[in-house]
Design a protein around this nucleic acid. Structure first.
Lengths: 257, 257
DNA sequence: ATTGACTGTCTCGTATATTGGACATATGTA
DNA sequence: TACATATGTCCAATATACGAGACAGTCAAT
């Protein structure tokens, strides 16, 4: 009674999933894996009955949401998933508008420009338009990056309490690619700062040669729903960065509802 | 007994669907509809129990595959669907290569260029790159067009028997936008012709001002898996069309396994 | 104020989707 | 050749997801 522990979501052993949750498990796993997986391996990795996965995959493959490679019988996303997914970009009011603005920004500034959101607790690039520099930043649509590594991440967490933030982010994500560690306290301060400033600039975080400039897009409730950001070379002229900041914030506020 | 009718797939009333099939039903419906639908309407249109649809939608929305518009609570595809779908383009060997070739063709020829496949029995534009003409053909990725209206459609049906073809295509699809009807016999002949020629050219079918040039992509079994096609103005120089035909066929055969 | 239509949430009995296991083939390796 | 491991398909038993309906709340029209 003194310690009336809440059960950690699932009682014991392996989370037993059925029905639609199995479907979601499979899709999530394939997305995380990023390449085709054999059905057997899929069942093993998900700790699910082989027969269940066979049934499930053949249903999804029948609809074209998954495809089974004829050569090596690996399972991966199919063209129906692609076509369904395009509906999001075509119809979602925010995504639709943001895409146009991002493309415009990239064209006008010559810098790589991105539209980002949280997707199932992960920082995700929804749309990106490469800049015109010969050495391009390696970034891509669909890429998921640890939240603390990014300027956009700081803004996207603005509405969350420190506790939520600590829980949301895996400790390993506080280590940058080069091994440096971001102190969690500094991070919390940076988030508050970014919220108050209405933009965020991070220098040399993911790599030493770039700085990222991000601005928040608010939804009707005043929550940060998404961000747009520019990826700039670390030695960009300070006045120009300040000017770009203005453009970015202006664009973001136009995208806010 | 004289009229021992085969039961129309499901005994009585409405096709009773459960589990994963319900999921597929919902997604298919939303895709066909092309815009957000209220949950209640969704249940009504699918003739499904309201409570089932509520459960299903909230599961899918929880995963981000669907999203519920906060303002008017309409349901439509979500960003997770978009991100999952991108995996298809990123990883599918054929789609990946075809996209590059289509972009190249459009750039080199200045004409609208498309990559097409059958998706659940419907002719679908998987990727498109607009040409440089001032008056663009209105075509878009994800667009589904009645098979008989297109040059690609003729090639995609190459492997099917006349019976299969008749069954696959809805009678209404033999009527062109302007009301003209395509005779089914002529259509069958055109398919055989296209198969033998290894390409297909149709003039003024969808509209009077364009002709379409398509070439088949074969899979390992020698079946037509997909096509690439060019959309040209109806008065294009004949020699140029012949030259483009060569380029197109050559590109398609490079894409064939 | 009354009516009707719709939304979102919940409960409980039961039709059925899921599953463990069996089977026949295929692939690989000592 | 024999042995081990994986694939794809099928089946019967049963745990459970689904569906009918109840309920409270919202909105518009009369």
């Amino acid at each position: 009674m003194a310690n009336d522990v809440i059960e950690p979501t699932v009682s014991s052993g392996g989370a037993r999933e059925r029905g639609i949750n199995r479907v979601l498990q499979v899709l999530e796993f394939l997305h995380a894996r990023g390449e085709g997986v054999k059905i057997g391996a899929l069942a093993k990795e998900l700790q699910a009955p082989r027969s269940s996965i066979y049934n499930l995959v053949s249903s999804l493959a029948g609809a074209g949401l998954l495809e089974i490679n004829a050569a090596d019988s690996r399972v991966f996303f199919g063209k129906t998933m692609y076509l369904y997914g395009l509906n999001y970009m075509r119809e979602n009011p925010l995504a639709k508008r943001a895409r146009l603005e991002v493309d415009r920004l990239a064209k006008e500034t010559g810098e790589t420009s991105e539209f980002c959101m949280l997707q199932s607790g992960r920082y995700t690039i929804i749309h990106m338009c490469p800049g015109s520099r010969p050495f391009r930043i390696s970034s891509a649509v669909g890429l998921q990056i640890p939240i603390p590594w990014t300027a956009s991440g700081r803004l996207l967490l603005a509405g969350h309490s420190p506790d939520q933030i600590s829980q949301l982010i895996h400790p390993r994500d506080f280590f940058l690619p080069d091994g440096r560690q971001i102190a969690i306290d500094d991070f919390q301060v940076a988030i508050a700062q970014a919220r108050d400033d209405g933009y965020c600039l991070t220098k040399g975080l993911i790599d030493a040669y770039t700085q990222c400039l991000a601005a928040p897009i608010y939804n009707a409730d005043g929550q940060v729903d998404a961000t747009i950001c520019l990826v700039l070379p670390i030695d960009a002229d300070e006045h120009r960065v300040w000017d770009l900041r203005g453009q970015l914030v202006e664009t973001a506020s136009r995208l806010s509802t």
